[in-house]
Design a protein around this nucleic acid. Structure first.
Length: 271
DNA sequence: TTAAGTGTTGCTCT
DNA sequence: AAGAGCAACACTTA
């Protein structure tokens, strides 16, 4: 379920493996996973060199220069693999970039939710899609974070996961962040006081940076997580790693939210 | 065996 | 007009 920490590690992988390589072919194994014309893509990309790899929210951008940017979105089940010459092809490769040195970059997606497309620029794509600021961008500071929450009567969790307000957080990490900040997912966003919104902002940065550093795209991620993380305990019947209380589930906008009823009490309604 | 659960985006409906 | 609800997808669990 690639959210910001996963996609950031995909970005680093591509930067490590594919920087400055030249495209020799683009293989669209599943046309439904590619938006646009394969012929046009091949014509535009053939012989181009990978200049820059960027991430914004959950989106990954491979910039080949002169208005040729590949955008990848991974949905709930997508991933990325660098394949060396002679190495076996992984399952569910939907789109593959072949480079002139024999290296391949495979966009993998078991379920076909998520897409690869070719766009003219990162900025025009983001504004067209109405994607909000990346949550780990230094420009996205406490004041801007608070502006996203202010005056909203929606559940705070729905603001955290609203990509048009802020980009990068999905269901799993929003639960983790709210657990870290000890805030109930259903708390009205606008009802958070200054201390609460500050705590939530700090928790967002701490949780996401920790996950990025531990690299969720490699084996053993769960075992490397700090003992007080919610993630390894999210299964039904799991217990709070902080106080031992049995965790509870609630549905918010048809998504499962896991929380600790003791550490994240439902805010008492105003009298 | 069938049905529900999983999570993201994008659509429709209000 | 913001927000709710569901469809798409494919595979797993009850």
């Amino acid at each position: 379920m690639p959210e910001l920490p996963d996609v950031e590690n995909f970005r680093r992988k591509v930067e490590r493996c594919c920087s400055n390589l030249t495209i020799s072919d683009i293989v669209i194994a599943d046309p439904a996973s590619f938006e646009g014309s394969p012929t046009d893509a091949r014509r535009r990309l053939d012989g181009r060199r990978l200049d820059r790899v960027q991430r914004h929210g959950k989106y990954l951008f491979l910039d080949f220069g002169e208005g040729n940017v590949i955008v990848m979105h991974f949905g709930p089940a997508g991933s990325l693999a660098a394949i060396k010459p002679g190495e076996e092809q992984p399952a569910y490769v939907r789109v593959r970039l072949d480079f002139s040195n024999g290296e391949q970059l495979a966009y993998i997606n078991r379920r076909r939710i998520g897409r690869v497309r070719l766009v003219n620029s990162v900025d025009s794509f983001l504004s067209e899609m109405k994607i909000g600021p990346d949550v780990l961008d230094p420009a996205f500071d406490l004041a801007r974070f608070r502006a996203c929450l202010a005056g909203r009567n929606r559940a705070v969790k729905l603001i955290l996961t609203d990509q048009t307000r802020m980009g990068g957080i999905g269901n799993t990490y929003s639960d983790e962040i709210l657990f870290h900040a000890r805030i109930n997912p259903a708390t009205e966003a606008g009802a958070l006081d200054a201390r609460g919104s500050n705590r939530l902002f700090r928790s967002m940065q701490t949780v996401l940076r920790t996950a990025v550093d531990l690299d969720p795209t490699t084996d053993g991620f769960r075992e490397r997580l700090p003992a007080r993380f919610l993630m390894p305990n999210r299964h039904p019947g799991g217990h709070c790693p902080r106080c031992g209380t049995e965790l509870r589930q609630m549905k918010l906008a048809s998504h499962t939210s896991t929380y600790c009823p003791h550490c994240q009490p439902v805010p008492s309604p105003p009298c």
